[in-house]
């Protein structure tokens, strides 16, 4: 599953990122914000007026807004609620 499809409220771990699909500068910025392999993430908010862009992602205690195109490049696996 890719991060953009993660239901709101579920927590997941990023298992793989298709870095070559992203603009290098943006890839570095995502990494710097902690959005990289191994990060525990959740989707907090998605789009406006029924759209699916942009997406607000919680990573650690921080909320980061990204475009859907960034989230599509990130593969995640769902985490059990107990492990949050």
């Amino acid at each position: 599953m890719t991060l953009d499809l993660l239901p709101i409220g579920e927590t997941a771990r990023i298992v793989a990122v298709n870095w070559p699909a992203l603009v290098p500068e943006e890839a570095r910025r995502l990494r710097a914000l902690g959005l990289e392999e191994g990060a525990r993430v959740a989707v907090a908010h998605r789009g406006i007026l029924g759209g699916r862009d942009p997406i607000a992602i919680t990573v650690g205690r921080m909320t980061v807004a990204v475009r859907r195109a960034h989230a599509v490049a990130m593969n995640v696996e769902l985490l059990e609620r107990a492990s949050i």
Partner: peptide, 10 residues
Amino acid sequence: GEASGFIMEL
């Protein structure tokens, strides 16, 4: 140029 992205800490 490339469509610009949007990455921003809230």
